[in-house]
Structures are given as C-alpha cells and as structure tokens.
Write a protein that binds this DNA or RNA. Structure first.
Lengths: 217, 217
DNA sequence: TGTACATCAGTGAACGCGCGTTCACTGATGTAC
DNA sequence: TGTACATCAGTGAACGCGCGTTCACTGATGTAC
C-alpha cells in the first residue's frame, strides 16, 4: 500500500477513462492552486538552516544559540530588513533636509532610498513582504511593517504642511506610492530577468512625478 | 567531523571572544541575506510533489505522467495563471464594451478583473510573480507575462485613441498602473493579514481614478 | 601573582522524517481480425 | 460476434539525501580569592 495516497478531498478516486488522461493534469494544477492558497501564511524562508550554517562557517546546531527555531530566524530576517529600510529612508530624508531640499524633493529622496535598498537587498526585501507579517503583532511592540507605513505617511504629511493636498487624502496617496514602488520592484525582480537598475530608478522619478502632479496647492 | 561546516566564505572561522557571542547573530542574518539574493531565481514552488499528489488523491509517481519534474510543474502553474488572468481581463473588457462603456470604463473593468483574479487566486498569483519568468523565454513562443503586459498597454492605447494622452507615455502609465495594482495586492496578502477585500477593490478605483486624472485630452 | 572555578561560544554524533525520483509492474479498455 | 493483443492510466516498492532538531560534550577565557 502506498501511504501517500488518498488524503485528498476525493475519497475514492476513479481512474480517468482512456484518452482522458490529460484530465489529471488539470486536476493537479487545481490542487496546487488550492494548496498555495493555504500556504500563504507560511514561514517561507526558502533556505535551510544548514545552508545558512554552511555559509557562515559554523555547525548547524550553532544556529540555536541565537534563534529558537527556523521560524524565528525568518522572523528576525524580516524584522531586521524593516528596520534597515526605514533607517535608510530617514537618513536620506535628513540629508536632503540638511541640503535645503523642499518636502517634495525630500519625498523623492526617500523614494530613491527605498528603491536603492530594494536593489541592494533583493532577497531580504522579498522575505519582508513574503513573510506573514500578522505574526509581528506581538502585544506591546510595534509591527515593523507599520514603521515603514508610518514613514510614507509622514513624508506625505510633511508635503501637506507646505500646502500640497491630494484628492485621495494623505493615506490614500501614501498607499498608491508605496504600492507602486513595491510592485515595480517585485515585477522587476521576477518577471523581466535582466535586472536593469536604471529601469527601476527611472520608475521612481516617474511615479513620484505623477503623485506630485496629482496634488494641488 | 561535522561535514556541514566550513563551506562558507570564511576559511578559518575564529570563535568570537567572550561576551561577543551576539556577533554571530549578525553574521547569520548577513549570510541569510546573501543566500536569499542567490535564491531569487529558484523554482520556489513551496509545496512538495507529495503534498500535491495527496491533495489530488493519487500516488506521487503519477505526477510524472504529466510533468517531467517539479520545476516543470511550477512552470505550468505560473503559465496557466497568466493565461487565465489575461482571459479574465479580456472577457471583462468585452463585456464592458458590449454594455456601451467608454474606454476609461473599460480600463476600470479590466483593472477590477485583475483584482478579482488576484483575490480568488492568491496562491497562483504569488507563484506567477515569484517564479523566475526569464525561463519562460523559450525560443519561438511568447512569454506569458508578456501577454499580460500587452493587455495593459492595449487598454491604455485604446484610451489614447479616444483622445486621452499621458505625460509619461502609454507604456509609462501602463507600468504605473500594473505596478500599483500588483504591489497593493502583494502588500495586501502579506503585510496586513486581515484580508479585507473591500480595501483592495477600493484601491483599484482610486488608482484608476488617479491615472485618468493624470491624462489630458 | 597564581590558581581553581564558573561561564560561555561553539561542536560531535545522532535521530527520525519527508522529499524527489526511478523502475518494474498491473489491470482495465479500446481495437484488429 | 468472439477473442487476442496493444495501449494507456496509474500503482508498489524502494533509493539515497538533506532537513530540523536534540543532547551531551569541549575547551578557551574571564573572575574570585
């Protein structure tokens, strides 16, 4: 008996009639889709602890000196990523401010910093947004992704203080900006494999331009 | 001897001095980041063949009747997804056109169809954009992601034929639209776990509105 | 200044498991004569 | 109309492997006296 069989939704699978063998192909694709829907909340760290240990040059057990299990490692990678991207954006903002930039240039500077981080840290970036962030919501502490969200909203608020205003409201436009930047990054890493950095950075200029055009004084 | 050790970049790792044990934690996080950068082009089907077989109710080996290996299964899932989302957008477009809608309403209908597909097929959607699409470029056949891209560009072109025009050009605005929609979907599935569908669909209205506002006659 | 001891960073060896894949096989069904 | 045969959908049994994790241990280093 093959113990792997028969746990699916069908209780007594009937073999397909002759010439209809291709039906199984469609059934398989549908099953994958169902499973992928369930898997969305998973840890999803696509490297093994042992690979990481090999890369660092330590024994696999030494991972447990710092992370209780694989899940916590994934969590830590994502959390670290959020903190670093927010720090990069803040630094870009401060530097632009120190150079006498106005708020829209400071917004642009932060968007560019986000983009630069995304290019430099593609892998971590994917983890950050591929990871089930709902588990970040431990009582008392701030969800790291919220920090990033707040950073965008603050940047828009700063523009509003200088007299700009948007039809969709500040949170609406912050979400458009964030979504477009992250979406472009995701499409850039996956869909078109040539990884031309110029393409990403020029997109940043266009989207920030479009967002600013959408504001009125 | 532990065979898992010592394959990393460091050739002779020295144990950290006393009280500096936390350094290893940072080293581990950096190693994960490096590995994730390399892993980006991977098959990345986060379910096993055996899981799929169980779900379908067949023996694991029966997978090989339809897919040469796990990679080809992942490829087929993504390809099937691209074809279905494009079909859904085309159908929405035709239906809107049959109802007498103008091109901007037809654009909106297609954006909504994309969004509805993304909600209904979250898992496949992730596969589609998480999958290394560069391998789709087999000689002679059209890359499925290109079909989707063409669909967006065509929708914008149709608007231009009715007199609209955009500062960023038709491809520029198509990319903004596609990126924003996909980015919002990705953020929706991962970052904020409550999965409120209303939030996604209202975003579609806002982004299409913003894009149309950006056009002039 | 010397030494016994506690601490701490990290390893050795092993576990049970699910995985992807291979090869030989089965048995129902349509087809040729 | 009956039967031998080829085809085809799918299984049985097994393989070697890397994985996550556990437990007992080591040996260098800082500290108390």
């Amino acid at each position: 008996m093959n113990e792997d069989r028969g746990k699916g939704t069908d209780t007594a699978r009937r073999r397909n009639p002759r010439g209809q063998g291709d039906r199984l192909r469609a059934e398989i694709l549908a099953a994958v889709a169902r499973l992928l829907d369930q898997k969305i909340a998973d840890s999803a760290l696509p490297v093994s602890l042992r690979e990481v240990a090999r890369e660092v040059g330590i024994a696999p057990q030494s991972m447990y000196l710092h992370f209780a299990d694989k899940d916590q490692l994934a969590h830590a990678v994502a959390e670290d990523g959020y903190q670093r991207v927010v720090a990069a954006m803040r630094e870009a903002d401060s530097r632009a401010a120190a150079g006498g930039a106005d708020t829209s240039d400071r917004l642009r500077a932060q968007a560019n910093a986000f983009c630069a981080f995304a290019i430099a840290e593609r892998g971590v970036m994917r983890m950050m947004f591929g990871h089930d962030a709902s588990r970040f919501g431990e009582p008392g502490q701030v969800h790291p992704a919220r920090l990033l969200w707040q950073q965008w909203v603050d940047a828009i608020h700063a523009c509003e203080k200088e007299g700009l205003s948007w039809p969709d409201g500040s949170e609406g436009v912050a979400m458009i900006l964030w979504s477009a930047l992250f979406g472009r990054f995701a499409l850039w890493t996956s869909t078109f494999g040539h990884h031309d950095e110029e393409e990403l950075t020029s997109f940043v200029d266009r989207i920030v331009g479009a967002v600013l055009r959408d504001a009125h004084r």
